[in-house]
Nucleic acid binder design. Structure first.
Length: 758
DNA sequence: AGCACGCCGACT
DNA sequence: GTCGGCGTGCTC
């Protein structure tokens, strides 16, 4: 064979032992593995998972040894040798490598990208494991040569754009500019050469979380439901083989206690555990309970960790000093040694799916990892996703049900208020809190109890409208209306962050008669403070929690009873367990129902059941009031009865009828480009390729302009590929992916199992 | 992702 | 003619 002759000329690999050639996943967005020769220095020492440096293209790159090499992908190129073994011990286990290669394959993503996504960022960079994070920032040079900038407009439009942005914004992160302008880095380099901009490396400060180590809560006896579920899980753990469970426990049924005891079981026998949560900063109470129980055995993988700290946590896990990893989505890659159990809390939460740069589902990879590690996986939630439920129905996982709250506390009573009726009354029309909710809130305040108010929209009003021409003020980069924020009196875009003063006159017709419409959390807060002057109100949304640790701070203050009302967005629905809360108000339940997404009903149902579940967790029973314009809507009616079974079976039938998951499998392909025409024509071209490649085996819907037609200055088009099975989907998708040549300035995203259809 | 190669339009 | 920007293709 060709490659044997080639290799035998080199002194490094004289035999055909497996170590003479290795396959390497190189840190580059390239769709294949590469084969390298192994030099004598470490011949026979390389094992899968070793972090290497290899010559690649012009320079050197980091790479991971995947396994023995067989032959070159293309026999006509020259074989190169591994240049360096970076770390003496492998940084990935074989089970992790199998998981990651599976993921790269399934999510149609370059193996090198997937593999390095599982490692701390310093490992990817040459020069090793920096402990301080430095980023490149760029600003205009102090002496600006106006003559030369004007010159640029014709010759280099991209450079001219960048200069204009820098004039406005001052100093900016290079990586942020790159997100907005493709090719920004080369353009900036050119500008730097001309002396028009200045780049420097800036140290990014770390924000270590001050960790509380509370004492473990006293041991309580389990409910019958909890005991049955725990027994089923521990029986599976005893077998030390892959098994999957869907733990469906109503809100307040004590799922966390089941997780903790199951994790204890594996930790006691020397194994490790992974606990995934949707958003770690929103679940301080869960993190506190885990740390209380397992103390220094816990590694918390917080998104706010600095690079050095993250690396430290990573090392502690890899060395076996810590055995329990807690974190969001990416913690599925935590280097826990020999994990015996992987728990996914709130498995229905859509934040487990990353839908940008590198799309993958942390929940689904948790199952794959558990399979590869021979571990038990537990998906826990009060509102299982339709997919996971169907998975259990088809016996791919075991359904465990906990229908009763601890201490036999009742589920809260839910009432629905029809907002259509309040439209008739001129006073009520102006208010976001209906008379029914207002009187319930007054009672709660009287009794010195607490309330949670939920409104899934931040800001003050949802848009500013001109009373003469009827146009709303829109974002210049995105196809959305700007939202008025009263705190800083600005109009903001919730997608790109654009922040502009409110114009005196209408930008379209010069009329001075602008008016604010709609509601957001800011306006609601104002109304609560006005109508209930004595009440202490805490607002929880991404505006009040922008600073690190702020969520934890505000939630703990509310939990300690320092405020009477917690008012906010999605954040108030997740995970907190505040015994004093006896009232939950949903200000506008139908907000999510109008989204063009086949999961809109499922999301609404989950959201309502979850938020309702925050009420009545203490000794006193809870009450829930849902305000809506659609009181007879199925997902609202069934949520008021906490009726998951009816909901899921109706939803399954509906999905079957319409051909949506889990009845089918989906791939979304999204194209984006600065130029609208380029985006649409490329999308049409790709859709054509799908139709040609599919030969009728898959259904190609679209292309259509994305519901969010423009985002951060880029026009978006998308298509949905519907296939009867994964195999068919993969086959067709791979065929098309190989044919596509990405034109300059375009971005194409293949999103397998899309969650976010906007 | 980088980087070389090569085409093409704007200027000394 | 030359210079530099920008599209295209390749990396064991």
């Amino acid at each position: 064979m060709m490659w044997l002759e080639e290799v035998s000329k080199k002194p490094v690999a004289s035999t055909n032992a497996p170590e003479s050639l290795v396959q390497v996943a190189v840190a580059a967005p390239v769709r294949s593995l590469f084969t390298y020769a192994v030099p004598v220095d470490f011949a026979g020492k390389l094992v899968p998972g070793h972090l290497l440096e290899v010559p690649f293209g012009r320079g050197n790159r980091r790479g991971i040894m995947i396994g023995p090499g067989k032959t070159l992908q293309r026999p006509d190129v020259e074989m190169k040798a591994v240049s360096k073994l970076v770390e003496p011990d492998p940084v990935l286990s074989e089970a992790m490598i199998r998981t990651l290669l599976w993921a790269a394959d399934y999510y149609l993503t370059p193996p090198g990208e997937m593999v390095f996504a599982a490692l701390p960022p310093p490992f990817r960079r040459r020069g090793g494991s920096a402990s301080q994070k430095r980023v490149w920032v760029v600003g205009l040079a102090p002496v600006t040569d106006l003559e030369r900038i004007r010159e640029l407009t014709n010759r280099a439009p991209l450079q001219a754009d960048l200069v204009r942005v820098l004039e406005q914004a001052g100093e900016m992160d290079v990586s942020r500019l790159e997100q907005r302008f493709s090719g920004a880095r080369q353009a900036l380099r050119a500008l730097e050469k001309k002396g028009l901009v200045r780049m420097r490396r800036k140290v990014k400060l770390r924000h270590p979380l001050t960790g509380e180590h509370p004492d473990a809560s006293p041991v309580e006896t389990l409910t019958a439901d909890q005991q049955v579920s725990l027994d089923a899980i521990t029986t599976a753990l005893e077998r030390r083989a892959y098994a999957a469970f869907l733990l469906h426990g109503v809100t307040g049924s004590g799922k966390t206690e089941v997780y903790l005891r199951a994790i204890s079981h594996v930790v006691d026998r020397g194994q490790g555990a992974i606990l995934l949560v949707p958003e770690i900063s929103l679940t301080p109470q869960l993190v506190a309970r885990v740390t209380a129980k397992f103390k220094s055995q816990v590694a918390v993988l917080h998104s706010g960790l600095g690079e050095g700290e993250r690396l430290d946590e990573w090392r502690r896990l890899r060395l076996g000093q810590a055995r329990v990893a807690v974190g969001a989505r990416s913690a599925v890659f935590a280097p826990v040694q020999d994990p015996g159990i992987v728990v996914v809390d709130e498995e229905h939460d859509s934040s487990y799916k990353q839908s940008e740069r590198l799309p993958y589902s942390g929940r689904d990879l948790a199952m794959v990892r558990a399979r590869e590690e021979g571990a038990v996986v537990v998906l826990g939630t009060a509102t299982p996703s339709v997919e996971s439920f169907s998975h259990a129905e088809r016996k791919r996982s075991t359904l465990l049900h906990m229908g009763e709250r601890v201490h036999r506390r009742p589920l809260p009573e839910v009432e629905v208020v029809d907002l259509k009726k309040s439209l008739v009354d001129p006073v009520e029309r102006q208010q976001t809190i209906s008379p029914a909710l207002a009187s319930a809130l007054a009672e709660v305040l009287d009794r010195k109890e607490q309330a949670i108010l939920f409104l899934n929209r931040r800001g003050y009003s949802s848009f500013a409208l001109c009373k003469d021409c009827g146009r709303s003020i829109r974002c210049e980069n995105c196809s959305v209306a700007l939202v008025y924020h009263r705190a800083d009196q600005k109009l903001k875009c919730h997608y790109c962050g654009l922040n502009v003063p409110v114009p005196e006159t209408c930008p379209s017709c010069e009329s001075g008669r602008m008016q604010l419409f709609g509601l957001g959390t800011e306006k609601c807060e104002e109304e609560v403070r006005r109508r209930f002057p004595g009440a202490g109100v805490i607002r929880l949304d991404s505006d009040t929690t922008a600073r690190r640790g702020k969520v934890h701070d505000l939630v703990s203050r509310f939990a300690r009873g320092e405020a009477d009302v917690l008012l906010g967005t999605q954040m108030v629905t997740k995970g907190h367990d505040v015994p004093g809360v006896t009232l939950v108000g949903v200000l506008l339940a139908d907000l999510g129902l109008h989204l063009p997404d086949f999961r809109a009903m499922e999301r609404t149902f989950q959201l309502l059941v979850q938020v309702a579940g925050r009420a009545g967790r203490g000794h006193k029973p809870g009450r829930v009031i849902i305000q809506t314009f659609l009181p007879e809507h199925e997902s609202i009616v069934l949520a008021t009865h906490h009726d998951f079974d009816t909901f899921v079976h109706k939803e399954l039938a509906r999905r079957q009828g319409l051909g949506y998951p889990p009845a089918t499998r989906l791939l979304m392909v999204r194209v984006n480009h600065h130029a609208a025409e380029a985006a649409s024509s490329l999308a049409r071209q790709i859709a054509g390729m799908f139709r040609a490649a599919s030969a009728g085996r898959v259904n190609v819907l679209g292309p259509v302009v994305s519901p969010l037609a423009k985002l951060r200055g880029r026009h978006r088009w998308q298509m949905l590929i519907k296939a009867p099975t994964v195999e068919t989907l993969m086959l067709v998708a791979r065929t098309v992916q190989q044919q596509i040549k990405v034109p300059a300035g375009a971005k194409i995203l293949f999103d397998v199992d899309p969650q976010d259809m906007l």
